[in-house]
Amino acid sequence: MTVYLVPLVIIGALTSCGVYLLLSRNLTRMLLGLLLVGNAINLLILTVGGESGNPPIRGRTSGAETTTADPLAQGMILTAIVIAMGIAAFVLALTYRSFRLTTQEEVDTDPEDARVSKFADDEASFIDEDAPQHIPDRDTDEPDELDALPGHEGSR
């Protein structure tokens, strides 16, 4: 089996550029990064799919090829292209909606997420590692307050 270096370099470049764009705060750049990573994966599937050969149709030949091409890789890539188009349309719709609501394309840090993160950090600093931690008892088959809706005790 011959390994071609050019497709592998292209796959690496597409993946690295796509990840770089995905890490930005701009929604359009995120979409472009998602599409680049998807194209890199398609190229990877095509590269791993093996060498070219005769069409995978009984009785058909092309040139002096002795082997038959693997149709699975081609089918997977066609499916991935359709899925990528659907995801791109969805992300474009989200971007448009976000732009219409906030008139900006940058994704800001959610204040509630920042508050919860700060609260979790403060709470983690007060935990005493030497104190015995409470381990909840195992769940039993006995009914407790969360097992049924109020007023439906007889429905078991």
Rank of each mutant, 00 (worst) to 15 (best):
L44N: 14
L44H: 15
L44F: 15
L44K: 15
L44T: 15
L44G: 15
I45C: 00
I45V: 12
I45W: 03
I45E: 03
L46S: 14
L46I: 15
V48F: 09
V48S: 03
V48W: 11
V48K: 08
G49V: 10
G49M: 14
G49N: 10
G49P: 11
G50W: 14
E51W: 09
E51C: 04
E51F: 05
S52T: 15
S52R: 09
S52D: 14
G53M: 15
N54M: 15
N54G: 12
N54H: 14
P56S: 07
P56L: 09
P56W: 13
P56F: 15
P56A: 10
I57F: 08
I57A: 06
I57G: 05
I57Y: 11
I57V: 15
I57K: 05
R58G: 05
R58H: 08
G59I: 02
G59D: 03
G59M: 00
R60Q: 06
T61I: 05
T61F: 01
T61A: 04
S62H: 14
S62P: 11
S62Q: 11
S62G: 04
S62T: 15
S62I: 14
G63C: 01
G63V: 03
A64T: 11
A64K: 08
A64I: 11
A64W: 10
E65R: 05
T66K: 06
T67N: 07
T67F: 13
A69G: 03
A69M: 12
A69L: 07
A69W: 01
A69D: 00
D70W: 11
D70Q: 08
D70M: 00
D70T: 04
D70F: 06
P71A: 10
P71Q: 13
L72W: 11
A73T: 10
A73E: 07
A73V: 06
Q74S: 13
G75F: 12
G75H: 10
G75L: 12
M76N: 05
M76I: 12
M76L: 13
I77Q: 03
I77Y: 06
I77S: 00
I77W: 02
I77A: 01
L78R: 02
L78N: 10
L78Y: 15
T79S: 14
T79A: 14
A80Q: 07
A80K: 02
A80I: 12
A80W: 10
A80L: 13
A80R: 04
A80G: 09
A80H: 08
I81P: 01
I81L: 07
I81E: 01
I81N: 00
V82Q: 07
V82T: 06
V82F: 09
V82H: 08
V82E: 03
V82S: 06
V82R: 09
I83A: 10
I83Q: 07
I83C: 04
A84Y: 02
A84L: 08
M85P: 00
G86N: 00
G86M: 05
G86C: 03
G86V: 06
G86L: 06
I87W: 02
I87P: 01
I87K: 01
I87Y: 04
A88C: 05
A88G: 08
A88F: 06
A88L: 00
A88S: 12
A89G: 06
A89D: 01
A89V: 08
F90H: 01
F90I: 00
F90A: 00
F90Q: 00
L92I: 06
L92N: 04
L92A: 11
A93N: 07
A93F: 13
A93R: 12
L94Y: 07
L94I: 05
L94K: 09
